[in-house]
């Protein structure tokens, strides 16, 4: 295995293990040690302490859990909802397809995470609302991709043969359509995962995500920016963790795309 493969794999594995193991470890992200306020990394303090004297290492691991949980939930919901709408639009065609294309266009007319910011702002803070806000934006990409792919697969001979044999549509879609859609959807899901990790942190950065004292990398960065002049490690520690994870997931997505030979369409 090359360096370019095992390095991102190692980072992603570390992220997932940290997220899953966080509740099992003797971590205390809320423990306040007044003597250690803004103490830098090194020695027994590991990664240093924040503005309330809480250990950054513990908060980092707990934050990994938040980001993985949100990213995984949003991707799962988005992929199911998006594929269901996209495939049904392509399969049925006609009026339903027309309506779906319009709805997709309308959702895509909101740039970046703007709609998620508005939704999270209106629904109020909290991890559930973050998932709802991000999934409300996330399904669209999958719907568009699934529709486009399903349209091209729909006219292949094996699908036509199944139709001619009188197979029921749900069976055709499950057995003959979805397996061919899996590769591009998985690649899309990988990039979506990276995007959602950033988006969750972004919402928390704006104060619209997970509520304190629950740890989130975005919220840690937000708290840290106020002390960036005196204690830069408050921003650097969660910032570097976030970058590494997103970078690694993107690299893996790149590899996966080359491997599965899916043409990537930007936007």
């Amino acid at each position: 295995m090359s360096l370019r493969l095992w390095l991102p794999l190692a980072v992603v594995t570390a992220w997932v293990v940290a997220a899953l193991a966080a509740p099992l470890l003797p971590l205390d992200g809320d423990a306040i040690r007044l003597r250690l306020i803004l103490e830098g990394p090194g020695g027994m303090g590991l990664l240093g302490f924040d503005d309330l004297g809480r250990p950054l290492a513990d908060r980092l691991l707990l934050g990994a859990r938040t980001s993985l949980m949100v990213a995984a939930s949003v991707v799962v919901i988005s992929i199911i909802v998006g594929t269901a709408f996209g495939v049904s639009a392509a399969w049925m065609g006609g009026f339903w397809d027309h309506v779906m294309v319009r709805i997709i266009d309308i959702f895509l007319a909101f740039p970046g995470i703007l709609l998620a910011i508005a939704l999270a702002g209106i629904l109020g803070p909290g991890i559930d609302n973050v998932v709802v806000a991000l999934a409300a934006v996330g399904w669209v990409g999958f719907a568009r991709l699934a529709r486009a792919q399903a349209l091209s697969v729909k006219h292949r001979e094996h699908v036509q043969a199944a139709v001619a044999l009188g197979t029921r549509p749900p069976v055709i879609i499950l057995r003959h359509l979805l397996p061919l859609l899996a590769a591009p959807l998985i690649v899309e899901a990988t990039f979506a995962m990276a995007g959602i990790v950033i988006a969750e942190a972004g919402l928390s950065f704006l104060g619209l995500g997970v509520q304190p004292p629950a740890p989130s990398w975005g919220a840690m960065i937000r708290d840290g920016t106020r002390y960036v002049l005196v204690a830069p490690h408050l921003v650097l520690v969660p910032g570097i963790a976030l970058m590494l994870v997103v970078f690694a997931v993107n690299l893996l997505g790149d590899r996966l795309r080359d491997r599965l030979d899916v043409r990537y369409r930007p936007g």
């Binding site: 990276a194 942190a201 960065i221 960036v228 910032g239 976030l242 970058m243 970078f247 790149d254």
Partner: peptide, 13 residues
């Protein structure tokens, strides 16, 4: 790839 991966609320500070 680094540019895509670094969020603007990290790059800014």
């Amino acid at each position: 790839m680094v540019g895509v991966s670094i969020p603007n609320f990290v790059l800014g500070p």
